[in-house]
């Protein structure tokens, strides 16, 4: 994957137009009988200029893959987008991406195309996935006119579904990371957060296989059941 990025940077620098095949972008997968033990999954985290998908923008994308229950570090995605026009004054303190980095970042269009190719249509996991999904889908639509929906699953739901009795003291990524004693190398760095989320997913997948949840659709069912249970409990 690093080789690919280098290639791609090289192509950009040498002035050639991106060689992405717009018509043949990978088709998103649906939740079917893919076995969790062997499937490739994407775990993704975005840094944005704010919390409102209607007006804020994506500035960094970090993602790792889980392939056959392992995280291979030669298959990851870690890019800052080039968007010097954006106002980042509100959030620069959180993610530490300043104007200079944004100017040096990568062309948005190219980066997104590259992301789609790298994701290869695989299901996407994120912590509080709705947030990342809205931002990414909006950005994909605005920039590339791409409107196919990936399968998104929320790690913030998966965790309590498998560990209902965990006393985490909260529902945030930090709470769960602390609960499992994970070390997050740099909080609010998209790639580091994505890795922490992926580590939590490894723990969930291990538990899933032991409790008879073997496929993506079974996982999806388990989540649906869990959400319904929570709604009932709230009533």
């Amino acid at each position: 994957m690093l080789e690919q990025i280098k290639d791609w940077i090289h192509r950009r620098l040498s002035g050639a137009t991106a060689l992405h095949d717009f018509d043949n972008l990978p088709k998103p997968a649906t939740a079917a009988s893919q076995p969790l033990a062997t499937t490739r999954l994407i775990v993704l985290d975005l840094e944005t200029t704010g919390l409102n998908p209607a007006k804020d923008e994506v500035i960094a994308i970090g993602a790792v893959a889980i392939d056959a229950m392992k995280i291979p570090f030669d298959d990851q995605f870690d890019l800052i987008l080039r968007r010097p026009e954006l106002d980042i004054s509100e959030t620069v303190l959180i993610h530490g991406i300043g104007n200079e980095a944004l100017t040096r970042g990568h062309e948005t269009e190219d980066a997104l195309l590259h992301l789609l190719e790298w994701m290869d249509g695989d299901p996407v996991f994120a912590f509080h996935a709705a947030f990342d999904q809205k931002f990414l889908e909006k950005t994909l639509k605005q920039t590339l006119g791409y409107s196919q929906s990936h399968l998104w699953l929320d790690v913030a739901d998966i965790l309590p579904a498998f560990f209902p009795n965990a006393e985490t003291g909260g529902t945030r990524l930090d709470n769960w990371s602390d609960y499992f004693g994970l070390e997050v190398s740099e909080r609010h760095h998209a790639a580091a957060d994505a890795l922490a989320t992926a580590e939590l997913m490894l723990i969930c997948l291990n538990k899933a296989l032991k409790s008879g949840v073997n496929t993506l659709s079974e996982l999806n069912d388990k989540l649906r059941y869990y959400r319904r249970l929570k709604t009932i409990q709230r009533l």
Binding site: I71, F73, L205
Partner: peptide, 14 residues
């Protein structure tokens, strides 16, 4: 090492 490494989880007793 880091670029070719793979991270794996082993639950207690695995």
């Amino acid at each position: 090492f880091a670029e070719h490494a793979t991270l794996q989880f082993h639950a207690d007793g695995d």
